[in-house]
Design a binder for these strands. Sequence first.
DNA 1: GAGTGGTCTAGACCACTTG
DNA 2: AAGTGGTCTAGACCACTCC
Lengths: 262, 262
Amino acid sequence: MPKQPEPEQPGGSAPQAAALRLGVDRTSPVPLYFQLSQQLEAAIEQGRLAPGSLLGNEIELAARLGLSRPTVRQAIQSLVDKGLLVRRRGVGTQVLHSKVRRPLELSSLYDDLEAAGQRPTTRVLRNTVEPATARVAAALGVAEGADVRLVERLRYAHDEPMARLRNHLPVELLDCDTAQLESTGLYRMMRAVGITLHSARQSVGARAADAEEARLLGEAPGAPLLAMERTTFDDTGRAVEFGDHIYRASRYAFEFQLLVRP
Amino acid sequence: MPKQPEPEQPGGSAPQAAALRLGVDRTSPVPLYFQLSQQLEAAIEQGRLAPGSLLGNEIELAARLGLSRPTVRQAIQSLVDKGLLVRRRGVGTQVLHSKVRRPLELSSLYDDLEAAGQRPTTRVLRNTVEPATARVAAALGVAEGADVRLVERLRYAHDEPMARLRNHLPVELLDCDTAQLESTGLYRMMRAVGITLHSARQSVGARAADAEEARLLGEAPGAPLLAMERTTFDDTGRAVEFGDHIYRASRYAFEFQLLVRP
DNA sequence: GAGTGGTCTAGACCACTTG
DNA sequence: AAGTGGTCTAGACCACTCC
């Protein structure tokens, strides 16, 4: 059981993690496994851990950090779940050859545009209470004809129209202040009142713009549009929103990353 | 520390798991946590664990099954990751109100159609080696003009054209037998030769059909099409495929489930 | 205050891959 | 045969929620 540092130069995939300054702060309220996974993730993002390189075995890593192996495993596992690392039994844990960023998130168009530096703005076209159509009632799990809030908005980026967003919400869920709707995204408003979003069922298709849609979005009638329907659920399983949205295909596409589930 | 079975009827959310026949087989090579998670998943799917009901605390569950708490936690965690359960500190673990099925997977159109009972068939339009265009070279990480295999297929469901699939692959990756391409999906062929798919970067947009595309798909010129570009990576981080696909919007939409990452 | 999940430890044995 | 990750145990203390 050699304790001295090994020469280790077997090709180009020797453990590089040994050179990293890793360490945890036990006085911090941040969980130890999370501190470690953040440090490793930062090292990968910054290229200090080269793609394809081995991380070094878990036992040694645990010993070096003064942690138990399960704790180190928990840190590594979270990065495997993010797609940054790959484990192979009998081989080791390898840094994936970049290219991978984030798996698909339940994203808000507002946040997406803001993150892209697109300066999103919103015009509220409608903010009313209407009886639920059969389609909306089925999606939200309410009775057909029951009161449902209808919010229709036009979303701009750099003052160019990008999308028409039509959302249906249970009336009791949220105080939909029009001024607030114009200054932020719907998901942010939900989170602000304590709703924990959990999952969404989406459908993405395409269709031709009708005259009204073309006028709103500044496209020609018949122009191709991206159409998305989405039902969002909170962590109690309740449907909190049904959206029926159209996007200008000339200006917008959905980009996302998928991970294969093992 | 009350050891006797409690009356427990606090509303409608008492632990129902007590009524379940759970048990693990220690002689099986299947991991204990996996056996447990499968049993719980089946109980949820079949409604034997009602949505919203509590699972009962982990310690007790572990004791009942003769397992350690970490093992039980691992089983529960895998179902939380699948979106079937929700944990709340101080409260318990609850079954989510159904509706949730699978998060988005890296799906093959062939498998999707087959799973939907759509009887997919394929016509190979091209199966050649071509020099890589700039776009393809960038996606696959090869030199511009380098040899790349080009596979172009028309995919039918019930003998109706659904999509035109155009794939670019590194030449050395796969023996692309045309007969095989007509009888199965590309991902299956990759898995069959030991390629482990890991992730994909996708972009979904819409555009109008040109004359050629319209003719192939049986649509009118100018009809809206769903357009998807996808680069797929294996678990070494290597790009194994770049796809440039169009789907008839009148016949096809992408459906998927998203989970919010905590 | 009682009960829950969240985190952590210090070991153990097994299965798989590689030389 | 050696080294790796995969699984598992039997405890422990803490943070949060609810009564």
